[in-house]
């Protein structure tokens, strides 16, 4: 599409001059806001915004049968929807590979970090709690992975667990908070004209040759990583992105 080619050229032009269209430096997020409990019907919820990007996350808790290989542990399921409301390029229909990748990268970080203690979701034999984290991307102006992590994490931190009584889950009685053991946040880097920058807009993403995302669960540990796009990255670049991701961690955690 000709418009995309123009947007790509403009983004590259700015970046080659060491600046960005919105005036930010390469390692600067747009304004971030996170609002918790925005969908009171859900057990936990949040709206995360990075610049014009908006992602809702809702947490629902249901009864489930545990997996056969982990009979004493609860379940977490992360799904995402790239709704056509969010961008003209998103279409309704079965989940695209982008949407599956987004959900799986968020899932990987939440699961690996041990943020949710699965053993505490055990109720009785053959009965555990299943935590569904659903991401609804409603406005896509870039950096969906980082924004989705913020939304999912904030929603989990606001989650109240329904009461379990006589084999049933009482959704209107939610006495206890879901215990969350650490804050998982993610910073994604885009490679544009050979340079690395964070929090790309959708226009900048058009110019990107590749992305690397690093999720961290404390000041020195990573709990998820993903490379996407055709660009290659040297070990030196990976090394510096890991440092930079940890540097951004404090800011992101302060928004949760």
């Amino acid at each position: 599409m000709i418009i995309d080619e123009i947007k790509e050229a403009v983004s590259k032009d700015f970046i080659s001059k060491n600046t960005r269209q919105d005036g930010r430096n390469f390692l600067q997020y747009r304004d971030i806001t996170v609002t918790k409990n925005i969908i009171p019907n859900a057990e936990g919820s949040a709206l995360a915004q990075i610049g014009d990007t908006k992602v809702y996350a809702g947490v629902k808790i249901d009864l489930a049968t545990p997996y056969a290989d982990k009979p004493d542990e609860g379940i977490i399921v992360v799904n995402s929807e790239l709704s056509p409301i969010a961008h003209f390029k998103f279409e309704s229909g079965p989940p695209t590979e982008e949407s599956i990748e987004l959900a799986r990268v968020v899932d990987r970080g939440l699961r690996s970090s041990g943020a949710v203690d699965f053993k505490k979701l055990f109720l009785e034999e053959e009965k555990v709690l299943s935590v569904y984290v659903d991401l609804a991307v409603v406005d896509h102006s870039g950096d969906l992975i980082d924004c989705s992590y913020l939304a999912a994490m904030a929603a989990l931190k606001s989650t109240m667990v329904p009461k379990y009584e006589d084999g049933k889950l009482l959704h209107d009685e939610r006495p206890n908070k879901l215990e969350i053991l650490n804050d998982v946040v993610c910073t994604s880097f885009e490679k544009i004209s050979g340079k690395l920058l964070i929090d790309a807009t959708d226009d900048e993403e058009l110019a990107s040759s590749g992305r690397v995302s690093f999720a961290s669960c404390d000041d020195s540990h990573f709990c998820a990583g993903q490379k996407s796009g055709s660009a290659g990255f040297t070990v030196k670049e990976m090394d510096s992105m890991m440092d930079l991701a940890l540097e951004q961690r404090k800011l992101l955690v302060s928004k949760l």
């Binding site: 990987r108 699961r111 690996s112 970090s113 041990g114 690397v212 669960c217 020195s220 540990h221 990573f222 709990c223 998820a224 990583g225 993903q226 490379k227 290659g232 990255f233 040297t234 070990v235 990976m238 090394d239 890991m242 440092d243 940890l246």
Partner: peptide, 19 residues
Amino acid sequence: SNEILLFQLDEVWTKQQVL
């Protein structure tokens, strides 16, 4: 090219361990 073309990571790692 001495480049990494695919990279995925799960569970908990320090930077030194990844390197």
